[in-house]
Amino acid sequence: MIKKKLVALAMAAIMTLGLAACGDGDSGAKEEKGTEEAVQQETKKEEASEEQIVISVGYPDNPDTSHDKACTLWKEKLEEMSGGTMTMQLYPSSQLGNTNDIIDQILAGQPIITIADGAFYADRGAKDMGIVFGPYLFDNWEDCWKLVESDWWKEQCSLLADLGLTIVADNWVSGTRHTMTTFPVNKVEDFKNKKIRVPDNTIQTKGFEAVGATATPMALTDVYTALQQGTIDGVENPLHVLYANGFQEVAKYLVLDGHVLNFATWCTSTDWYSTLTDEQKKWLTDSGHEAGLYSQELAADSDEVSLKALKDAGVTVKELTEEEKEAFRNEAISFYEDPDLTKQWSPDLYQTVRKAMGK
């Protein structure tokens, strides 16, 4: 690109010099100098536009897990689409800090992308988005993808962008969230007064309180010891996360309650994102979408493998009947009626979201 423009400018310079030879000498010299400056300016513009953009991607998942593999594909696809002018540096295992730490860096305008969900966005001011992490909101994964394609979701993403966070991918799967405990859970009443570790956000805290548990926010890295010492009685997460952290060694019961279908999004700084060209934005979002489809495949495979591994490790697995799961769902409906939440939400939000999914 640069070479072609330099050649064109050089030809223009030659023609200018030729004309100058027939006229005033000083005028020709000025024309030559002006042409040289134009060449230099054009070169600088081209070099600036083709300078490689490096994006840091931080996430809590360990290397070789589903999200890490999908991020590697995202990096490859972005480099391929951009011709190498955009690339990513991956930072798994919370190397850039926990999710809230990274979001703080993003809001400061850093070229960073991190994985987050409605629960975190609710705590950052997009209150209505928190509902997508509510217990038993979705009946199946198809409901999730219908919601992501809805006008309601697009409106929420626009509001979030105004708050400084732009979502660049929203079709990733973290997995179906289940609960592993140090005590058997056969019915929803078994959660009463039990301490269950949750991520540090209001939505998930309220979600477990709705089924009678004592929600205990805690860093995932502290959970193993807390289970071992009896500080907490259980932990919830997708199966592959539970297994990867070795919780089967200190918690021998698993209830497949499927309380949240955890679709994941990736966000970045609105200010930084606005500095990209339309083409660069498209490369980033298109490659992120492709990687998201891959993450859906990986999550399904990973859950199957992880469940078998947990059983092989001696974990007693409780699969809920439809009737038992309905009892969990009925108990959790109080979440959507919690005045601490509804006073922050738009009127009739639960009904609005269900309608957006075609319910």
Rank of each mutant, 00 (worst) to 15 (best):
W152F: 15
E326Q: 11
A29R: 10
V185W: 05
L165R: 05
G83H: 03
A13Y: 11
E47C: 07
A300P: 06
F328N: 04
K281F: 03
D128S: 05
N100T: 15
K154S: 08
K77Q: 13
T72D: 14
D139Q: 15
E149S: 07
P135T: 11
D278W: 01
Q156G: 04
Q296E: 12
W266H: 12
E31Q: 14
D233F: 02
W145Y: 14
P63I: 01
L17S: 15
R197Q: 12
E337Y: 11
L159F: 11
Y253M: 05
Q228I: 00
V235C: 08
K44S: 09
E51G: 09
R177V: 10
G118Y: 01
M129L: 04
L17Y: 15
E79C: 12
A13G: 15
A70G: 13
F263E: 08
T166C: 03
D162S: 05
K325E: 10
K325W: 02
E31H: 14
P217T: 00
A13E: 12
I196F: 09
S94W: 09
A161V: 01
T270Q: 08
T179C: 06
E324I: 00
Q52K: 14
A219L: 09
D24K: 14
S306K: 08
T352S: 10
Y273M: 06
K75A: 05
G164S: 05
T179R: 03
I53F: 05
Y121M: 09
A215C: 00
G234M: 03
I55S: 01
D68T: 10
V255K: 01
A122M: 10
D61H: 12
Y121C: 11
A309R: 10
G118D: 00
G314H: 00
E80H: 09
